[in-house]
Nucleic acid binder design. Structure first.
Lengths: 240, 240
DNA sequence: GTACACCGAAACATCCGAGGTCTGTTGCAG
DNA sequence: CTGCAACAGACCTCGGATGTTTCGGTGTAC
């Protein structure tokens, strides 16, 4: 195993074992390099890698620190990973979202505080009558993020956040392509809000399912009719 | 922004734009460094970081290649991230698994091929009557992995794989602590298999829910009675 | 003609030391 | 007590030298 990979594991172990707690500062580069038995260059490679997945946080002129290691921070790194998938696997991500989003919405109907529900309602009102596509998508993202947050499960919230990245682009397409999409989206958002405000988890779950399934259905058709030959097998199976 | 981060973005863009396709070899270090306008050391940091999240694959003596970029490979990197979370957030991960696993099981009941179902059944038979804890957990992991794979959604499959990492430890604890756990696990696995073999998605979903919820319930109690004061708020809410 | 062993080129792995830049702190002047 | 300036510590970047691994070509033995 390369020296750098060993260093990554060593640092990882130092954190997991509790030797380095969240927020702690690592020994300086030269010192840590000597302690792990490698050169500063190789150590820097390891640190950079751990930085990318948000485990470490280097501040020039100060030092290298362990991040808070909160789930949202670490799962944020997944957004980066998800960026590499376009078109052909977006449907798979959306399918997962269709599983998680209704569950999160139902949980939100149970656990959200009255204040948060009020804010959720304000979010709906903030949108003007003829919003730009960008404003609509931004509002949509905030709306779903607040619901995910309201589920009370930070892991679930972060996961949905990550999944929203690639599907956000799909939503933009939708806004540009489908005429009634804007009105339908607002209508469904209102329905979801009403269900949450009424503390009706099952109703909220159903509306969320309808909402995501709508996007999924549209995207499936859009990709099926597109000039992308790589997904020709799947639409055939769905055609029946 | 540090030069290395710029390099990471540049390489990322080269892949997303299609300039570098999966399986392609990157230009040699010196050449790419010159092209991106930085030193080899800095480039190596960027490459190492992209390596950690399985976007690149360097082979000494050969060259650096773009991986297949398949979802399972990239989401595999999440296992690394998840490793940093112990005890206090395991419940959150398990809660997400409780959402995904039943959905995946229901999908498997619909989409799995007859051959795969046969193999799933063989998996259950392979386990001896008084298995070791390690064998039980290994068999359990394989069983759920095959079901997740049978859902037909690689993203869902990889996600469940990642979530199984930290909860696997919980399962080990369970095997060591709870007497009837082994028998109950086998019983529930059989029930899930029967439901899938009978092509009964709703029944399969329900058994999967029962199965995961059992682990979750046990873990919640175990942590609640443990000397971990960080999760004292949540069990109180569940107590009613 | 085929198969095996040897050899050299190419590419990554690792290390080192020097110079630059940023940040937080310290001490002095007002 | 406050504000500014100099200092020290830490990370950033660079370029070169040396070791290690893999691949492909060549030559020889069968």
């Amino acid at each position: 195993m390369p020296v750098t990979d060993v260093a990554i594991d060593k640092i990882k172990d130092m954190i997991i074992s509790g030797e380095l707690a969240p927020g702690d500062r690592l020994p300086k580069e030269a010192e840590l390099a000597q302690r792990l038995g490698l050169s500063r260059s190789s150590l820097r490679e390891a640190v950079k890698a751990l930085c990318l997945i948000r485990v470490l946080d280097v501040r020039q002129g100060d030092g290298t620190y362990v991040t808070s290691l909160e789930p949202n921070l670490l799962l944020d790194a997944m957004t980066f990973v998800v960026d590499f998938h376009r078109d052909d696997t977006v449907l798979d991500f959306l399918a997962v979202r269709r599983i998680l989003e209704p569950a999160a919405t139902a949980l939100a109907a149970l656990h959200m505080s009255d204040d948060d529900i009020t804010e959720l309602g304000q979010l709906l009102g903030e949108l003007e009558d003829s919003p730009t596509v960008e404003a609509l998508v931004a509002n949509d993202l905030q709306f779903h993020r607040k619901i995910a947050d309201g589920s009370g499960n930070p892991v679930l919230c972060s996961l949905l956040d990550s999944l929203s990245g690639p599907t956000a682009r799909a939503r933009i397409w939708r806004g540009l392509t489908q005429e009634g999409a804007v009105a339908k989206t607002r209508e469904q958002h209102s329905a979801i809000y009403d269900a949450i405000a009424a503390r009706e988890p099952e109703l909220a779950r159903s509306w969320a399912t309808v909402h995501v399934a709508g996007v999924e259905q549209w995207l499936r058709n859009a990709l099926g009719t597109a000039d992308d030959p790589t997904t020709d097998a799947e639409p055939a199976a769905e055609a029946s």
